[in-house]
Structure formats: C-alpha cells, structure tokens
C-alpha cells in the first residue's frame, strides 16, 4: 500500500521515514512512512484524532518524533527547520490569531519575520480573497479569520503549503474559495499537503490521498482509484415491475436487491451505466449517496489486497 514510498524518497518534498510519536495523554502516530512529491496535491484523509495534525506539527518541528526521521525538501526537519519553514506556508487546524490586532498588523509582522516581504506579496492574496485588512481580528467572522490564516500561509509564494483542515467550520462559499486557492497554488507548481475528514473535499482538490486512522496509514491511493473504490449507495423506487438481473449484470455493481419495486445497489466506479439503465424505467424516487469515511475505511479492511 505504501510500496511506492521507497522510489519516491529521493527528491520528495516531504518524506516521513518510520515516524512514531506518542503523547502521554494518548494518540499520535505509529511507524508512519509517507512520501509527497514536488508539485503534488496530497490529501491526508482521516477522522478527527487520527493523527493528521500530529504529522503536520512534526513536519513543522513544533513537536519531535519519538523515533524515525522526517525530511522536507531533502533536509532534516529538526536541524534545518528554519530553512524549511522559510519555504513553506501553514494554516493551523485550530487557527488562533492575535485578537487585539488587525489583519494588517499581524500580516506585516509575519512579513517582517519572513525577512521583510514587500507589501504587495500580502496585498495580492488579500485582494484575491476579498479580505478586509483593517478590522480587529476579534471582530471577524470565522471565515474571515481563516482567510487571514490563508493569506499568512500564501504570502511570499512558498513552495509547500501545509493546510490542516482548512475548510472545517466554514460556509460553503468560503470553502469553494479555499479550494480555488489550493487549485491555483497547484497550477503554479506548488506542493500542497491538505488534511481533511471530508472525502468529497479531498476528492475535489487532491491528486493522491493518504488514509490515516488511529495513527496508522491505511492506504495511499490516487484519487481516481479511491473514487473507483468508493461504493456509491443507489436507492431507487419504481412504479412498474423491473427485472433484478438486468441491474445485477451492470458494470461495477457489487450488491443488488430488488423487492417490491424498491431497488438497492452498491456501485463502484462510473455511475453512468446505472443512470442510463435507470433512465429507461418508471422512476418515482432516486437517491445516490457517497460512501461515508467510515465505509471507505471499512472497504480497505474487508479487502486488504484489493
């Protein structure tokens, strides 16, 4: 499942080598090996408390591994931390800002700490995200505060972006804006490491996805493969009788039951054959549901070598 990591360790933007980190209060990550290539948008998918934030904070040298090593841009995460941080931008999962200041004051201070960035480096992303720089941070909505965090991460055009649940708790409009920023960064050739507990979000922006649970990587897959594996639940109700076998034989159908004009299917891969077949029926009700994260993880446990 992580067989490609060895080949990718050379020239990788992020490379975690058998990293273990435990907290006294529990949690953390266990013998985790992971590699993210340059220019890649890597989605780090897992439920809350799985260890996503731990990995990101290890990369930043805010916490140190119990064992194993981490290389970022080919450099040691501990010894060369300052050089690494010069080249990356970070949005924390629990974004805490200096509430007594305005966005302009905080961003100016960070620009100074980054070696005196020009103001245009701040103004441009702030304009793109329609952020009001002169309001005190404590009076800002969660969405606007998150934008301040994003501007802080994006200013200076860093080569690597570490985004820890960048859209959690935001309204859909701002979420779309954030996804837009991620896609823009990717188009400019930056590497993005984005953690999320929402499958749809990762599916929308990422190239590859690492699934993490209880501090262990369950799988690393391309998004297309993951979406192929993700079983959609299709429920349809008809007004006239239908033949179960005509559904069972459609490509990608793994489960099929038809009772009393009510059809239930589990489908992997393209939904098109199903939709086309359904179009030829007297359909009275239809629902197609994406798998939950839990169902996705289960699919890896049930067929470990699939």
């Amino acid at each position: 499942m992580t067989g490609d990591t060895l080949d990718r360790s050379e020239g990788a933007t992020i490379f975690l080598d058998h990293v273990t980190k435990h907290y006294r209060s529990g949690g953390g990550v266990d013998d985790l090996t992971l590699s993210v290539g340059p220019g890649e948008v890597f989605g780090f998918l897992g439920p809350n408390g799985a260890g996503k934030t731990t990995v990101i904070r290890l990369i930043l040298d805010l916490i140190r591994p119990d064992s194993g090593s981490i290389r970022v841009f080919g450099r040691d995460s501990r010894r060369d931390s300052v050089e690494i941080r010069r080249r990356l931008g970070y949005v924390p999962g629990e974004l805490a800002l200096y509430d007594r200041f305005t966005a302009r004051e905080v961003l100016t201070h960070f620009a100074h700490l980054r070696g005196g960035l020009e103001w245009s480096k701040i103004a441009t992303p702030a304009e793109q995200m329609q952020l009001d720089l002169d309001r005190p941070l404590r009076t800002m909505s969660k969405g606007n505060r998150q934008k301040v965090g994003l501007v802080a991460a994006f200013m200076g055009d860093p080569e690597l972006l570490l985004l820890d649940e960048p859209t959690s708790g935001l309204d859909p409009l701002v979420q779309q804006q954030v996804h837009g920023e991620v896609r823009r960064a990717a188009a400019e050739g930056r590497t993005v490491f984005l953690s999320s507990h929402v499958l749809a979000e990762v599916g929308e922006v990422a190239d590859r996805v690492g699934l993490i649970r209880n501090g262990r990587i369950i799988a690393v897959e391309r998004v297309t493969e993951l979406q192929h594996r993700a079983l959609h639940q299709v429920d349809a109700t008809f007004s006239s009788p239908e033949d179960e076998s005509t559904f069972r034989s459609l490509p990608g159908v793994s489960t099929c039951t038809l009772t009393d004009h009510v059809l239930h299917l589990e489908v992997s891969g393209s939904l098109r054959p199903i939709v086309e077949r359904l179009a030829a029926t007297e359909l009275t009700d239809l629902s197609i549901r994406e798998p939950t994260l839990e169902e996705l993880f289960l699919s890896f446990y049930e067929q470990p070598n699939a």
Binding site: P92, Y98, G115
Partner: peptide, 10 residues
C-alpha cells in the same frame, strides 16, 4: 495556541 502560527515563520 498562537505559537503555531508564529513558529511557522522562519
């Protein structure tokens, strides 16, 4: 928790 953002700087 402002330290996360502060020490993300070089």
């Amino acid at each position: 928790r402002t330290i996360d953002l502060l020490l993300a700087n070089p």
